[in-house]
Structures are given as structure tokens and as C-alpha cells.
Amino acid sequence: MLNYIFSIHIISRWKNILIWSVSMFTLALVFTGLYDSFKGEITDMIGNAPKLMEAMIGPISEDAVTPEIWLGIELYGLLFPILLAVIAVSAGASAIGTEEESGTIELILASPISRGRVVLEKSLGIMIQLGIVSGFLWVGIATGSLLFPFDVSLTNVFSATAMGWIFGTTVAYITMSIQSLKGRKGLALGVGSGFVGLSYVMMVISGLLNGLNSLKYTSLFNYYDGRSVLINGLNETSFAVMLGLSGLFLVVSLYGFYNRDVGI
């Protein structure tokens, strides 16, 4: 395991990954456990939901509250993607950025490997890191469905989790591309966070103003839409859009890191 850059990326962040994974697992258990007690209140809330709330967390179904709808409102609507975005921005900025700041990048680049391999392995490390953390949310829900009266489609939960994972990966790669182009971790953190914030604002505005509805296509949250996936299953088109964006920004990272000075 010590032979690869991506494995060192994971090992060096094991505490961070462990804390986030346990947090996701706990969140999942809490929300699956609370469902039976609070589903009535949610039904009342749905009936009186203001438009702003719908704009913030997505369309709210007026059907009877199911575990999928409950998870969509409480967990997958906003909390899960925002938490993943936080992890992703940090991971994207620090993957190469921390090695550059500490100077250990010189150890790597003095070895007979290409800069392209460094970027690709770091990218793989990020995908695995986000996959582990996301996976624990699914495991938590699966565990909750065994412990509590929570009859949910684990396939759809898996699909929604996968949408979150690719959403996080996209955010991380956008952030990493800024770091790779400019070599500045702080700038990448700022741009990555700003992108997530702007993306969320676009989704809210497009939901509030009918005339600006098409703005939703500029928001990554629109493609993520974990709530719909929980009910309708995987949206392959949205998944492909985020996969494509991830690929695009991976290419930008490769270009940026390959063509700039390192260790000035």
C-alpha cells in the first residue's frame, strides 16, 4: 500500500476520513431512527411549506411521507451535499497544495514519475476519500433500516449517495484545478467555496423566480438532486454531466500542474 501516491493520500488523512465517516454513519442512524416519531410533523410541514423553502431544498412532494421523502428533506436535500462539498473543497485544495506547502512535493517530483501521474493518483485518492465518507452514509442508512421501522429502497439510497459522491468529486476537481493552475492552496479554497456558494444561490434563485428557471442549469446542485434520485432512481444524464465536468477539470489540473513551476 505504501507504493502509491493515492494510498499515501488516504493514509495521511485517515483521522479526517474516520471522523467524517463516523459522523455520516451517526447522522444516518439518527435520521433513520427519528423517522417513525417525526413523519407526522413532516406531513404537516409539507402542507404549509413556503416557496422559499422549496427553492432552498428542492420541490417538496405532497404525497404521504415515505422514508425516501424523509431522507430527501432531512439529509439528502441539503445537509449531505453541503457536508460533502466542505470535505471536497478541502481535499481538492490540499491534495497537491499541502505537499507543495510542506515541500514534500520535491521528494515526489525528484522520483522518475511524471507530473501527470501525480495529478491522476491524487485525483484517485480524492475519489476514494469521498467514496469512503459517502459510503458510510449509505451503510448507516442500511444499518438504520435494520434497527428501526424504516422500509427504504437501499438501491435508490445507493444511487442518491453515488450522486452525492460524484457531486463532491466535481467540486473537489474544480478546486484542485485552481490549485494546479496557480499553486496557491488558499486561492483554491476560496474559489472552491465560492463556487459551491454561487451554485447554491443559482439553484435558490431559479426556484424562486419563474423567469429565471433556466438558471438552474448553471447550478451543480440541480444535477445532484439527491431528493429526486431517492424517489425515482439514478438520473443517468445528471450523473454523466457531473462525470463530464469532473473529467474536464481533471484535464485542467493536468494542464496546470504540468505547465507551471513548482517549489519556487
Binding site: I8, S12, G103, E106, L107, A110, S111
Partner: peptide
Amino acid sequence: KNHIGYLAGDISLYDS
């Protein structure tokens, strides 16, 4: 780099 060994000034290593 197959033929080079390098020691950086004020070298940084992985503390862990």
C-alpha cells in the same frame, strides 16, 4: 530522474 539522487536544501519529509 532514473539517474539522479536529490537532497533538497532544508529538506521536507513525511513526519508520520
